[in-house]
Design a protein around this nucleic acid. Sequence first.
DNA 1: AGGGATCCATGATTGGATCCCA
DNA 2: TGGGATCCAATCATGGATCCCT
Lengths: 226, 226
Amino acid sequence: MRPVPPPGSEAELLSRAASLAGRTLAQLAFDAGVPVPDSQRRRKGWVGALVERCLGADASSLSEPDFTRIGVELKTLPLNRRGAPAESTYVCTVPLGRSPGRWEDSAVRRKLSRVLWVTVEADPVIPLAARRLGTAFLWSPNAEEERLLRADWEELTGLIALGRLEEINAHLGACLQIRPKAANARALTRAADARGAPAETLPRAVSLRASFTAAILRSAFPPPPG
Amino acid sequence: MRPVPPPGSEAELLSRAASLAGRTLAQLAFDAGVPVPDSQRRRKGWVGALVERCLGADASSLSEPDFTRIGVELKTLPLNRRGAPAESTYVCTVPLGRSPGRWEDSAVRRKLSRVLWVTVEADPVIPLAARRLGTAFLWSPNAEEERLLRADWEELTGLIALGRLEEINAHLGACLQIRPKAANARALTRAADARGAPAETLPRAVSLRASFTAAILRSAFPPPPG
DNA sequence: AGGGATCCATGATTGGATCCCA
DNA sequence: TGGGATCCAATCATGGATCCCT
């Protein structure tokens, strides 16, 4: 278990990520001194945590970017056999029971302001250990993307502020969605109801739709003309 | 079985079609003097033939538009419960064994040059007899649509001319597709192989993808802003 | 509980197969 | 056989549920 120091610049981080491209998860796990699980069924965040270690992520505390010094968030992006995102991307938990504040100050905006996307093979026919990291790239939302994110965020937090959380499901939002996020469907957390009174509800998370990260991928790697 | 005379103008045809909107297939079948089958499982072209009769289609011979005098082709467009096309749309059979000629002279272009689309409810939960006709509209490909159709047609007929028919499947083509069209998968028809020698192969048809007719629908009936 | 995510049952899609009629 | 299409098994998409670690 070799400790990797935090990167001192975006260039250093990108360079490290580029050096990991093409390596298998087995190779990364060996370098990190950790075993490769047989499957992700009971180790769902394993790839993300592995890549964090290999790149020197140092955020141990809450609501800080993974690379604290350079203010960059790390997200692994699992790609299916056609090279498209296989899953939505977790952003953060939804703060329930207090006022959402403004978009400018939101955790969603902060987390997404600067992201290193690290693509990873996720075709189920490839054994976990044999999957390779792909290209990594730095991203910040462009004006159009930020407009979309903000519109979704304001719609969703607006509903929550009105106590209409139970009306929210994963169908809402063009690029963001709010979905359950808990150990199981019986888990409860404190929230506020429509009158502001304390209530218990299922914890929720905000995530990016796979169609949105697919669009980010396309802008980062435009398809060859054909 | 009341005979309906062929329409003398597009306006007359549209007016007749408009008068059918909202009527059930049972009502149309009664007027035409034909029984309504229990299901379409063994009567797949029944709705199309019924609407032809009700509107006075008169093309009994090959490769003529359904309304010969005014040069209009009739296509029923089955819509699912969300109002989107439930199926692809048959255009014509693929001529195998002779050279495809030019797009300008092709059967696909001719058939699609002027189409009366007649929408029909096709939600499986609605009994066949109770399904209603929806709005009908006249359509010709705009410049962009014709460009797309032509590109697909040229790609597909190009492959056939090279004797690569067996490489074609329904995945090819952005708006057109080529699919089997026969009594069953053992049916054979004459074709030419890669060397131009006679060969036997499964008969094929050209159809429009449901995503393409969905786009046509959207341009005919733009969704309300919201 | 928050951060890292994937799992998987169910619904939507669709491509190859099939059906009737003239 | 060509014209009118729909059927349906298999694949794809996804939203709600779940899992581990610290």
